[in-house]
Design a protein around this nucleic acid. Sequence first.
DNA 1: GGTGAGCGTGAGAGCGCTCTCCCAATCCTG
DNA 2: CAGGATTGGGAGAGCGCTCTCACGCTCACC
Lengths: 326, 326
Amino acid sequence: MKRVTLEEVARVAGVSRATASRVVNGASSVDESLRHAVQRAISSTGYLPNIAARSLVTRRADAIGLLLPDERRMDGDPHLASVVSGVTRVVRPLGVHLVLMMTGPGTREQAMSDLRCGRLDGVILVHTDPADPVPGQLIAAGLPVVLAGRPLEPMPITYVDVNQTAGAALAARRLKSLQCNRIATITGPQDTPAGQDRLAGFLAEVPDAVVVHGDFTRQSGMAAMERLIRCCPDVDGVFIASDLMANGAIPVLHRSGRKVPDDVAVVGFDDSSAALTSEPELTTVRQPITDMAAEMARQLLRQITEPRSPAVSVVFEPSLVVRDSG
Amino acid sequence: MKRVTLEEVARVAGVSRATASRVVNGASSVDESLRHAVQRAISSTGYLPNIAARSLVTRRADAIGLLLPDERRMDGDPHLASVVSGVTRVVRPLGVHLVLMMTGPGTREQAMSDLRCGRLDGVILVHTDPADPVPGQLIAAGLPVVLAGRPLEPMPITYVDVNQTAGAALAARRLKSLQCNRIATITGPQDTPAGQDRLAGFLAEVPDAVVVHGDFTRQSGMAAMERLIRCCPDVDGVFIASDLMANGAIPVLHRSGRKVPDDVAVVGFDDSSAALTSEPELTTVRQPITDMAAEMARQLLRQITEPRSPAVSVVFEPSLVVRDSG
DNA sequence: GGTGAGCGTGAGAGCGCTCTCCCAATCCTG
DNA sequence: CAGGATTGGGAGAGCGCTCTCACGCTCACC
């Protein structure tokens, strides 16, 4: 089982290596008969182009990186599979590899050098720490990068996000339509755009809502709900800024003797798997994660093929998924 | 920002390209002073080796693939992040890339050609369909491959698994120690090794257990539990072969007026996130997923560096995580 | 019939790296 | 101190591919 090269294919087809290469790469200007000869030679020899050799001359790796937060932070995030799936859908038909990198010591630097030494053509950054300097560095270096979610500080970087504000408004209107009188919200961390926007969007609809802070984790959801029913026992509708927090909060409600949704209506955000494992199943705001991931991939590929193309932001509209909790 | 090559480094350091290469690759036989000169040259020029060029001559891609089932099947699988994390931990320090491939039309063939054309050095196969011919083909071609989980048919292939039988026995003993008299189990699909072994291991300890079949999904957990309480209303202890099924089953128990764990003790399997989002939190059998993934990566790397090394199986011992459900 | 445009093809120069020689310098041993 | 053994470094040949360039051919037009 020896490797078969383009040279070999050319020999078998009776053409030059250049012509064989043209056929492999689908160049148009090749005579039909020669094209067929080459194609026959390819299948008869079982030829597969050596990517390293190609990559060496084209200076393209045909691989992109997906930079993820590490397991701990990912833990709560049910989206990984959806993100991977969305990116894959766009990227695979083009033969581009998806390289996964979990944040750990030195990962981001690693990704930078992979990018610079041509091992990666671009990266998608997920859940970036607002203080992280990497996105800025990448942009400054003119390297293709796409962010999942709006950056905290405005910067000329391409990102894909869901309309968080609109999503929170959807939740607010649902609660109002349920005739809730005493409405509260458990927020996400206020140092993240998602946390901020979900609160702002909600308050825009329900200005007098009771606000209790959380940080998107289950734990914080439990704690926040305990505080909420203590400070505001007559609450009858609550928007919880992530399903995971809602998942922690609902048992607290139950233990306090309140029924969901009869006594207290609950609306979550994310439509993650936590929405289905809650009891009752969560009414929640859905983000089209897979589509968003696909769009990130598309944006990244565009940047790769058209360097220095302008930064854009693509914002998807969320939708309300009505289940049993509110 | 032009690319700096080894040639350039050699020039700056005043040595030959060969020597510079030796330093980059950590060859021992280089004079200290020259080594330092080269290292200075590397950092002053900001040199990064071009992986494609290296790969072309070494015939190593320094990348491995992780072949996953598609999103639908993955959906229930809470392990993805843990698997990725475990593999990453082993692989990154070596500068090896982790390429994610979700099964879709043509993925497996794609992976095969990536392997053959030297774009991937090896693959880890997760949740392979028992009928899938790919593992066999890979083995036949002498390509490095590691399976997550024992293959259904015995074959000379390296795999890493948890001792499913022992795990089920752990659950059984827990239920017995709780003085349960009427013990049942909800199984996984019986055409998978995991499904088979968990049932067998359980029956070995509780031969007279009531057996109801499921397929690892939440839905099936609900349905199975409904059947169970109908056919066996006095059940007071049940081993459910996956946390996800347990997560679907517990609300059924609640709705039937049974309290968990007071009326019915429940033990799950996996220690996935579904165990924590259940109410009450699940007592379950834990598999050390991250460690197992790391071991898979190690085994794969060994096969890559030592081709034709014998197939081995590594089996991890599970442990019981006692929480509130049983 | 001469000229020029247009097109398909082949020759060949690299892309940046590793690695095998081979030579020179140093070391040990008798 | 001669001889061989050992060691470090350099020259250079590729790895397999793409892509530019120039060549030869056909065709149209004046």
